[in-house]
Nucleic acid binder design. Structure first.
Lengths: 301, 301
DNA sequence: CGTCCTGGTTGTCTAGGACAAAACGAACAA
DNA sequence: TTGTTCGTTTTGTCCTAGACAACCAGGACG
């Protein structure tokens, strides 16, 4: 395999670093320094792309680009993330269980993983399965990805298989008209769907009517969809990976677009550090979400 | 609701037009002309965003931006797409059936749609269900979206519900080790998953081992995943909406990244007009895909 | 120990110029 | 009539380089 070279658009695709950022780093830090083709356009060799991917991963963990770029390659790969230890024996016990599930993914044993998960689902019931298995497992996979022990494609495989399990479980729940009507979706650029599926499962168990619209709805469309579906609540999910800086603005804008009688709930790891906003409920954990739904049932508007 | 205004990043998110394009149109055609905030940055009023969305929709149908922008608003909304009529009586008959399904989505009747689809699945069996119901229905929804009779959120609802049905059906198929091992995914920026699910269903029925990795895998990751899973074939899906110009380059690059003994199949509406590329099988229709799999079974490498 | 400030860091925006690839349309040939 | 070739126009993406606001870290201070 000849070492292929990537133009700036390809690097943006593969690393998630915008063209603007790539050019700015080159100007400021002197890395990356791509070759130029006959037309004067940037051609990034594969090893620079590789280094950029590594840097991006470390940035998502909280490191700062200036330092990372100044760090020699060997040190970079050694930069292990500080991982919080399990807090109590219960966590430790489940951590071991989860480790087995992670190992199955790591071995690319799709069938084995599915079977193990189905067993857990049968044993725990859907609510505990979501809260005690899927949620911590997702967190563990995120951590594993961050510290490099999971490849991107392994994370994708996990996500895909887990999505299927949750959807199957949700499909098995009884239907019929129920309250409140909750529209579940995410904003453009936010494509993580596991969080949405987890709350959907919990909400559906609690008697809510969930309208799953998938991910990445333009804000104006969310407004229209909420009216068309006569939703009582619009629930958005933000993953930890979502650029935090954008969230308050998005929520405010959506609040303006949305009819005032429709509640706006925002959840997921991404909102943990977001300041309270008027007219928006922030639900950091699944427990918060359940509590909010109970409150709604106790006192519907 | 005060008319909110959008910065250029928000408009890019909501319309799918890149910042570069938005600025270029302003320079060249004098539209859109956003206000400026205190900092000199563009603030697009909602009605301009609305018009841009309309223009984008018409562009995706093949119209050219220069003409569209010069056209007054009333004419724009009247621009109905030329739709090809059903070709024969069989098509006409199923067209009527499909119309009922579309109507259910249009009424936002998720439960009704799911039930109707499950009935069809039971009656037709999975293969015919995919080929005679899901595939044409997907095309019809795409057309409806293009000519404006479907909102974005209605298309999302359709996609979400149909995804669930297909995944359920696939999950019900027997497991076990099978050949060939086919890795199913799509390149970054390509997030349409229905095509992948359709071929997954067909391939699984034919005894292939499908490894679904979801959408949007970076090219380098696809290469690694293929090795890790010892895949015989990597199958990519390109929707009609995917920028055609990028496809040949992507396929060539992926071909370089991929070990030569691994076959590369590219399918979906997006490859219909793509020129043949060395080392890549182009599968425009689901029939093409099935035929390719039969050929593989007849003469495995 | 917490809080405020301050300066360095970082991403995103702005402007206009350049160019290649695609689409169009006209002229021509079969 | 249909198909092909060849300019011309259209259109998107890339380029440079400058500006600035938001964010973060770390020190000074209460």
């Amino acid at each position: 395999m000849n070492t292929p070279s990537f133009n700036i658009a390809a690097v943006e695709r593969d690393t998630g670093l915008s063209k603007d950022v790539l050019r700015m780093w080159e100007r400021r830090y002197g890395f990356p320094v791509p070759d130029r083709d006959a037309n004067g356009e940037r051609c990034y060799p594969a090893e620079q792309v590789e280094r950029l991917r590594l840097i991006k991963r470390l940035m998502d963990q909280g490191h700062r680009p200036g330092k990372l770029i100044a760090t020699p390659a060997e040190e970079l790969t050694a930069l292990a993330p500080r991982r919080s230890a399990p807090r109590d024996s219960h966590d430790a016990a489940t951590a071991e269980d989860l480790g087995e599930l992670l190992a199955l993914i790591k071995q690319h044993d799709a069938a084995g993983y599915q079977q193990a998960m189905l067993q857990r689902l049968a044993r725990q019931g859907l609510q505990r399965f979501v809260q005690d298995t899927v949620a911590p497992l997702t967190r563990r996979v995120g951590e594993a990805w961050e510290d490099g022990s999971f490849e991107v494609f392994e994370e994708h495989l996990f996500t895909e298989l887990t999505k299927r399990l949750l959807r199957q479980a949700i499909a098995a729940l009884p239907g019929g008209p129920r309250r409140p009507r909750i529209l579940l979706t995410s904003v453009p650029e936010e494509q993580h769907v596991l969080g949405l599926l987890m709350v959907e499962a919990l909400f559906a168990l609690e008697g809510a009517e969930c309208i799953p619209l998938g991910t990445q709805m333009p804000l104006l469309e969310i407004g229209r969809a909420a009216s068309a579906h006569r939703a009582d609540i619009v629930a958005l999910s933000f993953s930890v990976a979502f650029p935090q800086r954008q969230i308050p603005g998005l929520l405010q804008q959506l609040r303006l677009v949305l009819a005032p009688e429709i509640a706006l709930w925002a959840g997921g790891g991404g909102v943990a550090r977001v300041a309270k906003t008027d007219g928006v409920h922030l639900l950091v954990t699944l427990d918060d979400a359940l509590r909010a739904l109970h409150d709604w049932h106790a006192a519907p508007p």
